[in-house]
């Protein structure tokens, strides 16, 4: 029975294997009502499998999951009325126009565009000038917006977005996340996955995933706070040589124009880079990507 007080999404000990490969390993987590929750991890981490289990498209081998209080196996019909889903692949009819796609999905979900227009108004207005254009002829960013409109048109309780920003350029990605922030204000629970670590900070809570397991789950701030060491950003005239030099002594990874070094003191670091020119060393706060790398290494 659905209970308003319980969490919007609950997974308990979910496992899913395809043949010999384990896609998701004994996974448990929950998402609160109205939360913007991010599954962060590379391809093959098991993100899409989780989405498919939660949207009742796949049956887990073991474990229990509920969405909005309904069991994903038993009550799949109830769940299908209540969730919006944007699969990883572009999933609209390329040969239908923007308008036709929207009307089709609205009717499919037993509603009309008119009835729920307020829900999608803000997003739809951006693509409205192209409403008679076939969906296949839209740019990547506009396709995402249309797909989002179609997923929202029935006012879902929970919105599942599987890698909505993959393959989309930086500008469109930014716009997309701004839209998600505004949707969140309407009270919809949003579960979103992404391989881009920089997008993690835009979620309220995140699960860092790798190979079917969760490395860490918390708010982005708490995860960054839990980073165990001091982190230094280093740069010099010859970055590649610098990387090779420091790597012999400490964990060192390229981050944009700097290298991020951890596990040694600032003095020791200064010693290792003696042979370099134009050296800059500064202490920096770790980002999600730093944390992810750290957790990944610890895991291995």
């Amino acid at each position: 029975m659905p209970q308003q007080s319980s969490d919007a999404v609950i997974l308990t000990n979910i496992t899913k294997t395809y043949g010999e490969t384990t896609a998701v390993k004994d996974l448990s987590f929950s998402v609160k009502h109205g939360e913007l929750f991010g599954l962060i991890g590379p391809d093959g981490a098991g993100k899409s499998t989780i989405f498919r289990i939660l949207t009742t498209l796949l049956l887990a081998d073991a474990g229990v999951a509920t969405v909005d209080g309904y069991d994903v196996v038993k009550d799949y019909r109830e769940i299908r009325k209540r969730v919006g889903y944007m699969p990883g692949k572009f999933s609209l009819y390329q040969d239908l126009t923007v308008e036709e796609n929207l009307h089709f999905f609205a009717t499919l979900f037993g509603t009309t565009v008119k009835e729920n227009y307020s829900m999608i108004k803000e997003i739809y207005e951006q693509i409205a000038p192209f409403k008679t254009r076939r969906a296949g002829k839209l740019s990547g960013g506009m396709k995402q917006k249309l797909a989002l409109c179609c997923a929202l048109i029935h006012r879902p309780e929970v919105l599942f977005l599987d890698e909505p920003t993959t393959g989309v350029d930086a500008v469109s990605r930014k716009e997309f996340w701004e839209m998600l922030q505004r949707l969140k204000q309407q009270g919809i629970t949003i579960v979103v996955s992404t391989p881009y670590m920089d997008e993690a900070d835009l979620c309220e809570r995140i699960a860092l995933m790798q190979s079917g397991s969760i490395l860490s789950i918390d708010t982005p701030a708490a995860i960054k706070h839990a980073y165990p060491d001091e982190l230094y950003a280093v740069k010099s005239a010859n970055m590649h040589q610098l990387l090779k030099d420091i790597r012999q002594y400490a964990s060192c990874y390229a981050f944009g124009e700097y290298l991020h070094v951890s596990g040694i003191s600032e003095n020791a670091l200064a010693g290792y880079v003696k042979g370099h020119t134009d050296v800059i060393i500064k202490k920096v706060a770790p980002g999600i990507e730093d944390c992810f790398i750290r957790l990944l290494l610890k895991h291995e």
Partner: peptide, 13 residues
């Protein structure tokens, strides 16, 4: 192939 089947299945239809 287009991924629309996933959405059709997830709909209450």
């Amino acid at each position: 192939e287009n991924g629309t089947m996933e959405i059709l299945l997830v709909s209450p239809f």
